[in-house]
Amino acid sequence: MDISQYKDVYVFAEQRDGVIQNVAFELLGKARDLADTLGEKVVAILLGNGIKDKAQQLIASGADKVFVVDNELLKDYLTEPYAQAITQIIQSQKPSIFLLGATTIGRDLGPRLSARNVTGLTADCTKLEIGENRELQMTRPAFGGNLMATILCKEHRPQMSTVRPGVMQRIPVDNSRTGEVVDFAPNFDMAKINRVKLVKTVKEEKSVADISEAKILVSGGRGVGNKEGFQKLEALAKELGGEVSSSRAMVDAGVMEQSRQVGQTGKTVRPNLYMACGISGAIQHLAGMEESEFIIAINKDKYAPIFNVADLGIVGDLHKIVPMLTEKLKTMK
């Protein structure tokens, strides 16, 4: 492979029901930064059905060029038609870098693309930078978040990476930016596409706001104990105008739903306030919340690792402190 033929920073612009996902804009922000360092272009790939008019949003958020594949086969995400369309773009355009969101879609599509194009894929990167030899340095947590590792993809292109939602920063929208929109028409191999049939897509009405969007999170761990314990946290969250989240322990125990789980196997959150109640602070949990603006920890065990990342630590019984705090806040209104 002659890697000198490969250039530009490509972003998979994930959309669902025609709505471009935040992670796509965040990736464009990072791609802009990388492309400016390299003196190359930012190119977005937008796949879907009836989505061509969305391309301008990508340009306004940093793309110089958008490849649009508008086809009814791409209306809902399915591995094979998406992999076919993108592979044909990769093989004809030769991108140097290709970024995807680490969503259920990106984590399904990314590995399939890496194997099809025989190149490397680094998952869940928290930092992307250009090195001395113009290579992409991809840094990610390793060993369950205990160590950071910087990964290179030296002799294969594109250099592929997934990034979790909420990790990179988008650039301010500039509607005066201009760019090129290119319609791309791939040849679909229907025999392969027809091997998987989508029967239905079900959206579950979630009473929950997405915890990764919440500005205030009251989060509970093993120390909360049970559903009754979480009711105390819910009362406090309500008073603060926030949401309740959870450590993995309480999800595994069936007390909390998985969609509220913070951490390595859950969601990455970055609220203005993270109140960790009865959470010891396993490294996997810290990996998902330590970028929070302000962290308050309440725990009985003064040696709990959560205190190493807390801005304010309280050694004490959450079952007493949390209800008292809720009452106090009520009286202050």
């Binding site: 490397g120 978040g145 160590l147 910087t150 990964i151 993809c153 030296k154």
Partner: peptide
């Protein structure tokens, strides 16, 4: 295709 360039402990605030 990928290799570890370096690894380092996470810097805690």
């Amino acid at each position: 295709p990928t290799s570890v360039f370096k690894s380092f402990p996470k810097s805690l605030k």
